[in-house]
Design a binder for these strands. Structure first.
Lengths: 217, 217
DNA sequence: TTTTAAATTTAGGGTAACCTAAATAACAAC
DNA sequence: GTTGTTATTTAGGTTACCCTAAATTTAAAA
Protein backbone atom coordinates (compact mmCIF):
# COMPACT_ATOMS: atom_id res chain seq x y z
CA UNK A 1 0.00 0.00 0.00
CA UNK A 2 1.33 3.39 -1.00
CA UNK A 3 0.88 6.48 1.17
CA UNK A 4 -1.21 7.90 -1.67
CA UNK A 5 -3.70 5.03 -1.62
CA UNK A 6 -3.80 5.20 2.16
CA UNK A 7 -4.78 8.85 1.92
CA UNK A 8 -7.70 8.02 -0.34
CA UNK A 9 -9.00 5.40 2.10
CA UNK A 10 -8.73 7.78 5.02
CA UNK A 11 -10.50 10.64 3.26
CA UNK A 12 -13.18 8.24 2.12
CA UNK A 13 -13.75 7.21 5.71
CA UNK A 14 -13.81 10.80 6.91
CA UNK A 15 -16.40 11.71 4.27
CA UNK A 16 -18.72 8.98 5.44
CA UNK A 17 -17.70 6.29 2.95
CA UNK A 18 -18.28 3.61 5.55
CA UNK A 19 -22.05 3.93 5.20
CA UNK A 20 -22.69 6.16 2.18
CA UNK A 21 -21.52 6.62 -1.38
CA UNK A 22 -19.02 9.45 -1.58
CA UNK A 23 -19.00 11.37 -4.90
CA UNK A 24 -15.65 11.74 -6.66
CA UNK A 25 -15.80 15.48 -6.54
CA UNK A 26 -15.69 15.58 -2.74
CA UNK A 27 -12.58 13.45 -2.73
CA UNK A 28 -10.99 15.57 -5.45
CA UNK A 29 -11.69 18.69 -3.40
CA UNK A 30 -10.32 17.33 -0.16
CA UNK A 31 -7.14 15.99 -1.74
CA UNK A 32 -6.76 18.95 -4.11
CA UNK A 33 -6.45 16.79 -7.17
CA UNK A 34 -8.37 16.61 -10.45
CA UNK A 35 -11.55 14.49 -10.74
CA UNK A 36 -10.14 12.20 -13.47
CA UNK A 37 -7.35 11.19 -11.12
CA UNK A 38 -9.94 10.16 -8.57
CA UNK A 39 -11.82 8.02 -11.10
CA UNK A 40 -8.59 6.30 -12.03
CA UNK A 41 -7.63 5.68 -8.42
CA UNK A 42 -11.06 4.35 -7.51
CA UNK A 43 -10.77 1.69 -10.20
CA UNK A 44 -7.45 0.71 -8.71
CA UNK A 45 -8.88 0.61 -5.17
CA UNK A 46 -11.77 -1.53 -6.40
CA UNK A 47 -9.35 -4.00 -7.96
CA UNK A 48 -7.50 -4.21 -4.64
CA UNK A 49 -10.74 -4.84 -2.76
CA UNK A 50 -10.80 -1.72 -0.59
CA UNK A 51 -13.72 0.00 -2.27
CA UNK A 52 -17.03 -0.62 -4.06
CA UNK A 53 -17.50 1.86 -6.85
CA UNK A 54 -20.65 2.74 -8.79
CA UNK A 55 -19.78 4.82 -11.87
CA UNK A 56 -21.28 8.32 -11.80
CA UNK A 57 -22.49 7.71 -8.23
CA UNK A 58 -19.54 7.39 -5.93
CA UNK A 59 -17.57 4.98 -3.76
CA UNK A 60 -18.10 3.12 -0.52
CA UNK A 61 -15.48 1.39 1.57
CA UNK A 62 -15.58 -2.39 1.85
CA UNK A 63 -15.17 -3.92 5.30
CA UNK A 64 -11.45 -4.33 4.61
CA UNK A 65 -11.25 -0.73 3.45
CA UNK A 66 -13.02 0.47 6.57
CA UNK A 67 -10.73 -1.51 8.84
CA UNK A 68 -7.65 -0.24 7.06
CA UNK A 69 -8.82 3.38 7.29
CA UNK A 70 -9.52 3.02 11.00
CA UNK A 71 -6.05 1.67 11.63
CA UNK A 72 -4.56 4.66 9.84
CA UNK A 73 -6.68 7.10 11.82
CA UNK A 74 -5.65 5.37 15.03
CA UNK A 75 -1.98 5.79 14.14
CA UNK A 76 -2.55 9.41 13.21
CA UNK A 77 -4.21 10.17 16.55
CA UNK A 78 -1.64 8.30 18.59
CA UNK A 79 1.12 10.40 17.05
CA UNK A 80 -0.86 13.55 17.78
CA UNK A 81 -1.08 12.63 21.43
CA UNK A 82 2.66 11.97 21.52
CA UNK A 83 3.51 15.23 19.76
CA UNK A 84 1.35 17.32 22.07
CA UNK A 85 1.89 15.53 25.36
CA UNK A 86 5.58 14.72 25.14
CA UNK A 87 7.10 16.98 22.52
CA UNK A 88 5.16 20.09 23.48
CA UNK A 89 3.68 20.81 20.06
CA UNK A 90 0.72 23.12 19.83
CA UNK A 91 -2.60 21.42 19.01
CA UNK A 92 -2.94 23.16 15.68
CA UNK A 93 0.60 22.23 14.58
CA UNK A 94 0.38 18.47 14.90
CA UNK A 95 -1.88 17.54 12.00
CA UNK A 96 0.67 17.78 9.17
CA UNK A 97 3.31 15.98 11.25
CA UNK A 98 0.97 13.11 12.10
CA UNK A 99 -0.18 13.02 8.49
CA UNK A 100 3.33 11.98 7.48
CA UNK A 101 4.13 9.72 10.42
CA UNK A 102 0.97 7.62 10.13
CA UNK A 103 2.19 6.16 6.82
CA UNK A 104 5.49 5.07 8.36
CA UNK A 105 4.04 3.31 11.37
CA UNK A 106 3.97 -0.48 11.66
CA UNK A 107 1.28 -2.21 13.70
CA UNK A 108 3.93 -3.17 16.23
CA UNK A 109 5.08 0.43 16.57
CA UNK A 110 1.50 1.69 16.96
CA UNK A 111 0.80 -0.82 19.72
CA UNK A 112 3.95 0.05 21.61
CA UNK A 113 3.32 3.74 21.22
CA UNK A 114 -0.21 3.32 22.53
CA UNK A 115 1.06 1.49 25.60
CA UNK A 116 3.75 4.12 26.15
CA UNK A 117 1.10 6.85 26.04
CA UNK A 118 -0.92 4.82 28.56
CA UNK A 119 -3.81 4.01 26.24
CA UNK A 120 -5.26 7.47 25.66
CA UNK A 121 -8.93 7.49 24.67
CA UNK A 122 -8.91 10.62 22.55
CA UNK A 123 -6.55 12.64 20.39
CA UNK A 124 -6.05 16.35 21.09
CA UNK A 125 -8.96 17.18 18.78
CA UNK A 126 -11.30 14.84 20.58
CA UNK A 127 -11.15 11.98 18.09
CA UNK A 128 -11.44 8.46 19.52
CA UNK A 129 -8.31 6.36 19.27
CA UNK A 130 -9.41 2.74 19.73
CA UNK A 131 -11.19 1.41 16.67
CA UNK A 132 -14.14 0.34 18.84
CA UNK A 133 -14.55 3.77 20.40
CA UNK A 134 -14.37 5.24 16.90
CA UNK A 135 -17.60 3.44 15.95
CA UNK A 136 -19.29 4.51 19.18
CA UNK A 137 -18.26 8.09 18.72
CA UNK A 138 -19.65 8.10 15.21
CA UNK A 139 -23.04 7.04 16.52
CA UNK A 140 -23.20 9.30 19.57
CA UNK A 141 -22.01 12.51 17.91
CA UNK A 142 -23.61 14.64 15.23
CA UNK A 143 -22.42 17.56 13.14
CA UNK A 144 -23.07 20.83 14.94
CA UNK A 145 -25.38 21.73 12.06
CA UNK A 146 -27.61 18.81 13.00
CA UNK A 147 -27.97 19.68 16.67
CA UNK A 148 -31.54 20.24 17.86
CA UNK A 149 -32.40 23.94 18.20
CA UNK A 150 -32.42 25.09 21.81
CA UNK A 151 -30.94 21.91 23.23
CA UNK A 152 -27.53 22.17 24.88
CA UNK A 153 -24.69 20.07 23.44
CA UNK A 154 -21.04 19.47 24.27
CA UNK A 155 -18.31 19.90 21.62
CA UNK A 156 -16.64 16.52 21.44
CA UNK A 157 -14.54 16.61 18.31
CA UNK A 158 -13.06 19.06 15.82
CA UNK A 159 -11.90 17.89 12.41
CA UNK A 160 -8.17 18.51 12.52
CA UNK A 161 -7.25 20.81 9.72
CA UNK A 162 -5.03 23.60 11.01
CA UNK A 163 -7.05 26.33 9.31
CA UNK A 164 -10.31 25.06 10.80
CA UNK A 165 -8.79 24.83 14.25
CA UNK A 166 -7.76 28.45 13.94
CA UNK A 167 -11.27 29.42 12.87
CA UNK A 168 -12.92 27.72 15.86
CA UNK A 169 -10.23 29.02 18.21
CA UNK A 170 -10.99 32.53 16.95
CA UNK A 171 -14.66 32.02 17.80
CA UNK A 172 -13.85 30.67 21.27
CA UNK A 173 -15.05 27.17 20.51
CA UNK A 174 -13.05 24.38 22.14
CA UNK A 175 -13.45 20.71 22.91
CA UNK A 176 -15.58 20.18 26.00
CA UNK A 177 -17.38 23.51 25.69
CA UNK A 178 -21.16 23.49 26.08
CA UNK A 179 -23.12 25.39 23.46
CA UNK A 180 -26.73 25.69 22.34
CA UNK A 181 -27.76 26.29 18.75
CA UNK A 182 -30.24 29.17 18.91
CA UNK A 183 -30.67 29.98 15.24
CA UNK A 184 -30.07 28.67 11.77
CA UNK A 185 -30.24 30.63 8.50
CA UNK A 186 -29.48 28.37 5.57
CA UNK A 187 -29.89 31.19 3.08
CA UNK A 188 -27.14 33.22 4.71
CA UNK A 189 -25.21 30.07 5.71
CA UNK A 190 -25.28 31.27 9.30
CA UNK A 191 -25.54 29.41 12.58
CA UNK A 192 -26.14 31.25 15.85
CA UNK A 193 -24.93 29.71 19.09
CA UNK A 194 -25.03 30.50 22.74
CA UNK A 195 -21.84 29.67 24.57
CA UNK A 196 -22.65 27.84 27.79
CA UNK A 197 -19.75 29.19 29.86
CA UNK A 198 -19.54 32.82 28.76
CA UNK A 199 -23.23 33.11 27.75
CA UNK A 200 -22.08 35.07 24.71
CA UNK A 201 -23.69 34.83 21.31
CA UNK A 202 -21.50 33.35 18.57
CA UNK A 203 -22.11 33.34 14.82
CA UNK A 204 -20.32 30.93 12.53
CA UNK A 205 -20.69 29.67 8.99
CA UNK A 206 -22.96 26.67 8.64
CA UNK A 207 -20.67 25.12 6.07
CA UNK A 208 -17.76 25.27 8.46
CA UNK A 209 -19.92 24.18 11.41
CA UNK A 210 -20.05 20.76 9.76
CA UNK A 211 -16.52 20.21 10.95
CA UNK A 212 -17.56 20.44 14.59
CA UNK A 213 -19.03 17.33 16.18
CA UNK A 214 -21.20 17.55 19.27
CA UNK A 215 -22.95 15.25 21.72
CA UNK A 216 -26.37 15.94 23.25
CA UNK A 217 -26.19 16.21 27.02
CA UNK B 1 12.72 15.46 -1.96
CA UNK B 2 11.27 11.98 -2.30
CA UNK B 3 12.08 9.20 0.16
CA UNK B 4 13.74 7.41 -2.74
CA UNK B 5 16.18 10.22 -3.43
CA UNK B 6 16.83 10.58 0.29
CA UNK B 7 17.81 6.93 0.40
CA UNK B 8 20.34 7.42 -2.36
CA UNK B 9 21.97 10.32 -0.51
CA UNK B 10 22.16 8.39 2.73
CA UNK B 11 23.68 5.31 1.12
CA UNK B 12 26.14 7.49 -0.72
CA UNK B 13 27.24 9.01 2.58
CA UNK B 14 27.51 5.62 4.24
CA UNK B 15 29.68 4.33 1.40
CA UNK B 16 32.13 7.18 1.83
CA UNK B 17 30.73 9.50 -0.83
CA UNK B 18 31.65 12.51 1.27
CA UNK B 19 35.33 12.11 0.42
CA UNK B 20 35.55 9.49 -2.34
CA UNK B 21 33.87 8.56 -5.59
CA UNK B 22 31.42 5.73 -5.02
CA UNK B 23 30.94 3.38 -8.01
CA UNK B 24 27.37 2.80 -9.20
CA UNK B 25 27.57 -0.89 -8.58
CA UNK B 26 28.02 -0.45 -4.83
CA UNK B 27 24.92 1.67 -4.67
CA UNK B 28 22.99 -0.78 -6.80
CA UNK B 29 24.01 -3.60 -4.48
CA UNK B 30 23.12 -1.79 -1.29
CA UNK B 31 19.72 -0.66 -2.55
CA UNK B 32 19.03 -3.91 -4.42
CA UNK B 33 18.25 -2.16 -7.67
CA UNK B 34 19.68 -2.46 -11.19
CA UNK B 35 22.76 -0.43 -12.23
CA UNK B 36 20.94 1.47 -15.01
CA UNK B 37 18.51 2.79 -12.45
CA UNK B 38 21.44 4.16 -10.46
CA UNK B 39 22.89 5.93 -13.50
CA UNK B 40 19.53 7.52 -14.17
CA UNK B 41 19.09 8.63 -10.58
CA UNK B 42 22.61 10.05 -10.38
CA UNK B 43 21.89 12.32 -13.33
CA UNK B 44 18.80 13.52 -11.53
CA UNK B 45 20.72 14.09 -8.28
CA UNK B 46 23.38 16.02 -10.19
CA UNK B 47 20.73 18.26 -11.71
CA UNK B 48 19.37 18.95 -8.21
CA UNK B 49 22.85 19.80 -6.93
CA UNK B 50 23.27 17.00 -4.39
CA UNK B 51 25.94 15.04 -6.21
CA UNK B 52 28.95 15.38 -8.52
CA UNK B 53 29.04 12.55 -10.99
CA UNK B 54 31.88 11.39 -13.24
CA UNK B 55 30.59 8.91 -15.85
CA UNK B 56 32.10 5.44 -15.54
CA UNK B 57 33.83 6.51 -12.30
CA UNK B 58 31.24 7.17 -9.65
CA UNK B 59 29.60 9.87 -7.57
CA UNK B 60 30.58 12.16 -4.72
CA UNK B 61 28.26 14.19 -2.52
CA UNK B 62 28.35 17.97 -2.79
CA UNK B 63 28.44 19.96 0.45
CA UNK B 64 24.65 20.28 0.25
CA UNK B 65 24.31 16.56 -0.36
CA UNK B 66 26.54 15.79 2.60
CA UNK B 67 24.59 18.08 4.90
CA UNK B 68 21.30 16.61 3.77
CA UNK B 69 22.53 13.05 4.32
CA UNK B 70 23.76 13.91 7.80
CA UNK B 71 20.40 15.37 8.75
CA UNK B 72 18.70 12.18 7.63
CA UNK B 73 21.11 10.01 9.58
CA UNK B 74 20.54 12.17 12.65
CA UNK B 75 16.78 11.66 12.36
CA UNK B 76 17.24 7.95 11.87
CA UNK B 77 19.37 7.65 14.98
CA UNK B 78 17.11 9.80 17.11
CA UNK B 79 14.19 7.54 16.30
CA UNK B 80 16.29 4.49 17.15
CA UNK B 81 17.02 5.92 20.57
CA UNK B 82 13.34 6.61 21.11
CA UNK B 83 12.28 3.16 19.96
CA UNK B 84 14.77 1.38 22.20
CA UNK B 85 14.69 3.63 25.26
CA UNK B 86 11.00 4.42 25.46
CA UNK B 87 9.13 1.85 23.43
CA UNK B 88 11.22 -1.13 24.51
CA UNK B 89 12.19 -2.31 21.04
CA UNK B 90 15.11 -4.68 20.72
CA UNK B 91 18.25 -3.14 19.18
CA UNK B 92 18.11 -5.34 16.11
CA UNK B 93 14.45 -4.52 15.43
CA UNK B 94 14.68 -0.75 15.19
CA UNK B 95 16.49 -0.26 11.90
CA UNK B 96 13.56 -0.88 9.53
CA UNK B 97 11.22 1.23 11.70
CA UNK B 98 13.64 4.17 11.80
CA UNK B 99 14.25 3.76 8.08
CA UNK B 100 10.62 4.67 7.47
CA UNK B 101 10.24 7.32 10.15
CA UNK B 102 13.30 9.33 9.11
CA UNK B 103 11.60 10.33 5.85
CA UNK B 104 8.55 11.66 7.68
CA UNK B 105 10.39 13.82 10.18
CA UNK B 106 10.48 17.58 9.93
CA UNK B 107 13.41 19.57 11.29
CA UNK B 108 11.15 20.88 14.02
CA UNK B 109 10.10 17.39 15.02
CA UNK B 110 13.71 16.16 15.06
CA UNK B 111 14.78 19.01 17.31
CA UNK B 112 11.94 18.46 19.74
CA UNK B 113 12.55 14.74 19.78
CA UNK B 114 16.23 15.29 20.49
CA UNK B 115 15.40 17.55 23.44
CA UNK B 116 12.85 15.04 24.72
CA UNK B 117 15.48 12.31 24.60
CA UNK B 118 17.84 14.63 26.51
CA UNK B 119 20.33 15.09 23.70
CA UNK B 120 21.73 11.57 23.41
CA UNK B 121 25.22 11.37 21.91
CA UNK B 122 24.92 7.98 20.27
CA UNK B 123 22.28 5.70 18.76
CA UNK B 124 21.92 2.13 20.05
CA UNK B 125 24.48 0.95 17.47
CA UNK B 126 27.04 3.49 18.59
CA UNK B 127 26.50 5.97 15.76
CA UNK B 128 26.96 9.66 16.62
CA UNK B 129 23.81 11.75 16.55
CA UNK B 130 24.92 15.37 16.35
CA UNK B 131 26.24 16.25 12.92
CA UNK B 132 29.46 17.59 14.45
CA UNK B 133 30.11 14.40 16.41
CA UNK B 134 29.43 12.46 13.20
CA UNK B 135 32.48 14.06 11.57
CA UNK B 136 34.65 13.45 14.63
CA UNK B 137 33.58 9.83 14.83
CA UNK B 138 34.45 9.32 11.20
CA UNK B 139 37.99 10.50 11.85
CA UNK B 140 38.61 8.69 15.12
CA UNK B 141 37.22 5.28 14.10
CA UNK B 142 38.43 2.77 11.54
CA UNK B 143 36.97 -0.39 10.06
CA UNK B 144 37.90 -3.38 12.19
CA UNK B 145 39.77 -4.72 9.17
CA UNK B 146 42.10 -1.73 9.35
CA UNK B 147 42.99 -2.08 13.04
CA UNK B 148 46.70 -2.53 13.76
CA UNK B 149 47.62 -6.16 14.48
CA UNK B 150 48.18 -6.80 18.17
CA UNK B 151 46.90 -3.44 19.35
CA UNK B 152 43.76 -3.43 21.47
CA UNK B 153 40.74 -1.50 20.19
CA UNK B 154 37.24 -0.75 21.43
CA UNK B 155 34.17 -1.50 19.30
CA UNK B 156 32.47 1.85 18.89
CA UNK B 157 29.92 1.37 16.14
CA UNK B 158 28.11 -1.38 14.25
CA UNK B 159 26.45 -0.68 10.92
CA UNK B 160 22.79 -1.23 11.65
CA UNK B 161 21.48 -3.87 9.34
CA UNK B 162 19.49 -6.43 11.30
CA UNK B 163 21.28 -9.40 9.72
CA UNK B 164 24.70 -7.97 10.54
CA UNK B 165 23.70 -7.24 14.11
CA UNK B 166 22.66 -10.86 14.46
CA UNK B 167 25.99 -12.02 13.05
CA UNK B 168 28.01 -9.95 15.49
CA UNK B 169 25.73 -10.88 18.36
CA UNK B 170 26.31 -14.54 17.51
CA UNK B 171 30.05 -13.97 17.74
CA UNK B 172 29.75 -12.14 21.07
CA UNK B 173 30.81 -8.81 19.67
CA UNK B 174 29.04 -5.76 21.17
CA UNK B 175 29.53 -2.04 21.36
CA UNK B 176 32.07 -1.12 24.03
CA UNK B 177 33.85 -4.50 23.92
CA UNK B 178 37.63 -4.47 23.73
CA UNK B 179 39.20 -6.74 21.16
CA UNK B 180 42.63 -7.26 19.58
CA UNK B 181 43.13 -8.35 16.01
CA UNK B 182 45.61 -11.21 16.19
CA UNK B 183 45.51 -12.53 12.64
CA UNK B 184 44.39 -11.69 9.14
CA UNK B 185 44.10 -14.09 6.19
CA UNK B 186 42.93 -12.23 3.14
CA UNK B 187 42.98 -15.38 1.00
CA UNK B 188 40.50 -17.13 3.26
CA UNK B 189 38.73 -13.85 4.11
CA UNK B 190 39.32 -14.53 7.79
CA UNK B 191 40.04 -12.24 10.71
CA UNK B 192 41.11 -13.63 14.07
CA UNK B 193 40.38 -11.63 17.22
CA UNK B 194 41.03 -11.93 20.88
CA UNK B 195 38.13 -10.81 23.02
CA UNK B 196 39.38 -8.56 25.82
CA UNK B 197 36.82 -9.58 28.43
CA UNK B 198 36.48 -13.32 27.88
CA UNK B 199 39.99 -13.81 26.41
CA UNK B 200 38.41 -16.16 23.87
CA UNK B 201 39.51 -16.41 20.26
CA UNK B 202 36.94 -15.27 17.70
CA UNK B 203 37.01 -15.80 13.94
CA UNK B 204 34.89 -13.67 11.63
CA UNK B 205 34.73 -12.93 7.92
CA UNK B 206 36.91 -10.02 6.85
CA UNK B 207 34.25 -8.82 4.44
CA UNK B 208 31.73 -8.60 7.22
CA UNK B 209 34.30 -7.15 9.64
CA UNK B 210 34.17 -4.00 7.54
CA UNK B 211 30.83 -3.23 9.13
CA UNK B 212 32.39 -2.97 12.59
CA UNK B 213 34.06 0.31 13.51
CA UNK B 214 36.66 0.48 16.26
CA UNK B 215 38.74 3.06 18.10
CA UNK B 216 42.33 2.53 19.19
CA UNK B 217 42.71 2.82 22.97
C1' DT C 1 49.52 -4.81 -27.39
C1' DT C 2 45.77 -7.37 -27.98
C1' DT C 3 42.21 -9.85 -25.69
C1' DT C 4 38.90 -10.55 -22.27
C1' DA C 5 36.12 -9.56 -18.34
C1' DA C 6 33.62 -6.33 -15.62
C1' DA C 7 31.26 -2.08 -15.01
C1' DT C 8 28.56 1.26 -17.01
C1' DT C 9 25.58 3.43 -20.17
C1' DT C 10 22.03 3.57 -23.85
C1' DA C 11 17.76 2.04 -25.70
C1' DG C 12 13.35 0.74 -25.07
C1' DG C 13 9.58 -0.52 -21.88
C1' DG C 14 6.40 -0.74 -17.66
C1' DT C 15 3.51 1.07 -13.70
C1' DA C 16 1.85 4.64 -10.43
C1' DA C 17 0.01 8.91 -9.90
C1' DC C 18 -0.74 13.05 -11.52
C1' DC C 19 -2.56 16.50 -15.44
C1' DT C 20 -5.79 18.99 -19.36
C1' DA C 21 -9.24 18.90 -22.96
C1' DA C 22 -13.10 16.80 -24.88
C1' DA C 23 -16.99 13.63 -24.69
C1' DT C 24 -20.72 11.77 -22.15
C1' DA C 25 -24.06 11.01 -18.44
C1' DA C 26 -27.08 12.68 -14.77
C1' DC C 27 -30.09 15.85 -13.05
C1' DA C 28 -32.55 20.03 -12.44
C1' DA C 29 -35.15 23.79 -14.63
C1' DC C 30 -38.20 25.34 -17.72
C1' DG D 1 -39.78 16.59 -22.57
C1' DT D 2 -36.32 19.36 -24.08
C1' DT D 3 -32.51 22.27 -22.47
C1' DG D 4 -28.71 23.60 -19.83
C1' DT D 5 -25.67 22.89 -16.05
C1' DT D 6 -22.76 20.05 -13.41
C1' DA D 7 -20.38 15.77 -12.48
C1' DT D 8 -17.96 12.23 -14.38
C1' DT D 9 -15.45 9.64 -17.59
C1' DT D 10 -12.45 8.90 -21.68
C1' DA D 11 -8.44 10.07 -24.29
C1' DG D 12 -3.98 11.32 -24.45
C1' DG D 13 0.10 13.11 -22.16
C1' DT D 14 3.89 13.83 -18.26
C1' DT D 15 7.27 12.63 -14.63
C1' DA D 16 9.42 9.50 -11.21
C1' DC D 17 11.34 5.28 -10.53
C1' DC D 18 11.94 0.88 -11.65
C1' DC D 19 13.25 -3.05 -15.28
C1' DT D 20 15.94 -6.08 -19.21
C1' DA D 21 18.85 -6.48 -23.25
C1' DA D 22 22.35 -4.66 -25.98
C1' DA D 23 26.16 -1.51 -26.78
C1' DT D 24 30.06 0.74 -24.98
C1' DT D 25 33.86 1.95 -22.00
C1' DT D 26 37.32 0.77 -18.69
C1' DA D 27 40.61 -1.97 -16.68
C1' DA D 28 42.97 -6.14 -16.10
C1' DA D 29 45.28 -10.24 -18.06
C1' DA D 30 47.65 -12.61 -21.50
Amino acid sequence: MSPTKEDYLKILFELGGRTEQVPNKEIANRLSISPPTVTEMMNSLVKAGWVVYTPYKGSKLTQEGTDYAKKLIRKHRLWEVFLVKHLGFNINEVHPEAELLEHSTSAELADRLEAYLEFPEYCPHGGAISTELMEEQEVSTVHLTEAVLGEPVRISRIVDEDKLLQYFENHDLRIGDRVTVTGRDSGLDLLTLNHGTTDKEIQISQTIAQYLFVEHI
